[in-house]
């Protein structure tokens, strides 16, 4: 049998260490492109929030605050499980790795479930810009803009979550195939980085969308 490390080492690299470090660097660079992608939306949101604070607070008051807060906690727990999955991979404990990956995936699904319930409630309240939007306040145009950004940003985030679920599924599959070991588990680490990053984005989304108007209910 060939050494699994030798098999995993691509021909352009000299050593497993060089390969791991390069992949990690590549992933982090990818993550900063994600920072800039969401950053564009954060910038636009900030500009409009600064110009129309009252309308944006009013929009924020229409959020399902506790669902958002619980979802934040849910996502943090999934991040913890992901961290534990990477930890298990580093120790070469494949059973535990699979267990934590499954847990991460399930908690991620809980998050998406809560998120889509919220979307449904907004639809029910006629707060879905472009499809059905009803608001009687004088600032209706800007309340609608708040919701445009809400759906754009949480939607983009949810899209990243769905992709993340797919990646974690692939990692689980490879774990069960026995592709990872104490010496080679870079893909799990990279998937973890991506998952934690998506978590981080949500932490900010919670802060800008749910918090400012929560006291107005």
């Amino acid at each position: 049998m060939a050494d699994p490390i030798a098999l995993a080492l691509r021909e352009q690299f000299h050593s497993a260490e060089q390969q791991r470090e390069t992949s990690t660097v590549g992933m982090w660079i990818f993550l900063i492109t994600e920072v800039m992608l969401f950053g564009g939306l954060f910038t636009a949101f900030s500009v409009y929030r600064m110009s129309h604070p009252a309308a944006f607070d009013q929009g924020s008051a229409d959020m399902e605050f506790w669902m958002g807060a619980v979802n934040t906690a849910v996502l943090i727990c999934s991040s913890f499980c992901m961290a534990m999955a990477v930890h298990s991979a580093e120790k070469g404990k494949n059973g535990r790795l699979a267990f934590f990956l499954i847990l991460t995936i399930l908690i991620g699904l809980v998050f998406l479930g809560i998120k889509f319930t919220e979307y449904y409630l907004h639809y029910h309240d006629q707060k879905l810009p472009g499809i059905v939007f009803h608001d009687t306040s004088p600032d209706a145009a800007y309340v609608q803009m708040f919701f445009v950004f809400y759906f754009l940003m949480t939607g983009l985030h949810a899209f990243h979550m769905i992709i993340g679920e797919g990646i974690l599924g692939a990692m689980l599959f490879r774990t069960l195939l026995g592709s990872f070991s104490e010496r080679y588990h870079t893909p799990v680490e990279l998937a973890g980085l991506y998952w934690h990053f998506v978590d981080t984005v949500w932490v900010f989304l919670f802060a800008i969308f749910y918090i400012p108007g929560a006291h107005m209910k």
Binding site: I29, T33, M36, G39, G40
Partner: peptide, 8 residues
């Protein structure tokens, strides 16, 4: 890598 995501 820093500018293109903003265009996207």
């Amino acid at each position: 890598v820093l500018a293109t995501p903003v265009l996207a």
